[in-house]
Nucleic acid binder design. Sequence first.
RNA 1: GCCAGGGUCGCCUAGAGGUAGGGCGGCAGCCUGCUAAGCUGUUUAGUCAGAAAUGGCUUUCGAGGGUUCGAUUCCCUCCCCUGGCGCCA
Length: 429
Amino acid sequence: MITTRYVRDHIDMIKASLTKRKSDYPIDELIGLDESWRSLTTKLQELQAQKNRESIEISTMKKNGEDIRDRIASLAKLKEEITALEATLPTYSDRINYLLLSMPNTLHESVKYGADENFNIEVRKWGAPEKAIDIGHTELLEKMGLVDTERAAKVAGARFYYLKGDFVLLAKSLERFALDVMAKKGYTPVQPPYMMKRELYSGVTSLGDFGEMLYSIGRPKEAKIEDGAKEEELFMIATAEHPMAAMHANEILNAKDLPIKYVGVSPCFRREAGTHGKDTKGIFRVHQFDKVEQFILCKKEDSWKYFEEVVRNEEEMFQSLGIPYRVIEMCTGDIGIVAAKKVDLEGWFPSQKRYREVTSASNCTDWQSLRLDIKYDDKGERHYVHTINATAISIERALTAVAENYANRDGSISIPEVLIPYMGKSRIA
RNA sequence: GCCAGGGUCGCCUAGAGGUAGGGCGGCAGCCUGCUAAGCUGUUUAGUCAGAAAUGGCUUUCGAGGGUUCGAUUCCCUCCCCUGGCGCCA
C-alpha cells in the first residue's frame, strides 16, 4: 500500500516534482496530519498493550480459580478509553488515505513544465504528410455506408456508432494484426473482464476519473434491496490497461518472472464528460471503442527501458500501416497524476491538415503498484513493480487515420498492405 | 438463483473461545570435499526508541460489524473459490 512512510522516505523528490508541476497538492497538510495520526497511534498502542497484559492476567487468575470480577470492571474503563481514541483516528486517516490516493506521481526529469497541451513537445516525425484530401473521414465513411452515427444516436445517443460491411472486417483485421505483431514479440494476449470493482479501480487511475471517465453499473440484490442492503457497483473499463494492472493486485511476484508483458484486447467505455463540443461527429471520439493495449510489469530499474520499447512498438505499428505520425512528449499540464512520463503518437489527418492523437504510452512507475499492492521479491528484498501501459492499436481511432490516408480520388479506400492478408481484398469501394 | 463445503504468513496445511503450530520455497548464518544435504535463525504491516545493528509495542487467519475480560474459533452482512441442482449463449 501507499503509506505516509513512503512519502516521508521520498519527501524531497515528491516536493521537487510538485513544485515543477506548480501543483496545489496539499503536501504540508498531509505531513501535519500524519504527525498527529502517529502520535495518537502511539498513545493507542500503549493502551492496547495494557489491555492485552491485563487480559492475560485475567486468564491466569481464572485458571487458578480466583475472583476476576473487579479486574473485569477496571478493564471496562480502559476499554472505553480505547474506543474513544479509536473513534478519533478516522478523522485523520480518512483524509490521509484520500490524499495518498490522489497524490501525483513523481515526474521523470525529462518532463517539461507547461500549462496545457499547447506546450507539449514534438520529439520526432515519420513519413511524408503531403497528401491532401477535400473530404474528411467523418463524411466519407457515412457516405460510403461504412459508419452510421445517426441511427446509433437514435438507439444509444450521441458519440455512438454502427460500423458496417467491410469496415467491420477492417476493424477486426486491425485488431488481429496488432495482436499478431505483439504476440510475436513475446507479449501474452489477454482478454480481461470488462467491468471492475471500485476498490481496485481506485488503484489504477485518479479519483477524478470516476466522475469524468467511468460508467458505473449497479447490481442490486433484488431480494434484499428492501432490507437496505447496499447495492454492489461495478465500473465499465475505460481501457484494458486497468484490468491488466488490477490482475496482479495484492500479489508478490518473483523477480525472475519479470518482466510480465501482456497485450490486452477489449472494448473501452468512456463518458467523455468535459469534452462537449470536441470532435462530436463521426467515430473519432466516442463512448465505446475497441483497443489493443500493451501492458508491462517490471523491476523498478527496468521501467525506462521498457517504456522506450512500447513507444517503439507503437511506431512500428504505424510505420507498417504507412500512416505518417509524430511523437509528442506530454508537458506537466497534460500528463495527469498517474504517469511519471507520457508520450503520444499523433497520426496525420490530411483533411484537417494536422496531426491527431492516435496512441498514448505512460510509465506509471510505482504509482499503480503502490495502490494495488503489487510487489516483487528480489533475493529477499521486496520492491514495488513498475507498470507501463501503451496503446498498440486503438481500433476506431486508427480506422479514421486509415480512411483519410488511404482514401482514393474515385471514392474508394485502399487497404494497407499489411492488412490485405487479413481482409482478403485490397480495397473497399 | 438454491443447497453444501471452503478462504489461515510467498505456497501448502493444522488449530474449533485463552492470544497462530508444522512443512515447502526464499533469504541470512553455521557446518560438511564433492550430483548436495543437515542444523539455526528469519520470512504481514505499522509505530516508538536508536546514527546504526537491534529492541519494545501494536496489528494481521477473505472484508466489515457484533457478542466476550479475551474471537482464527460463536453471531450478522458482504466478497470470492469449489462441488451439486436450476437456468442458459
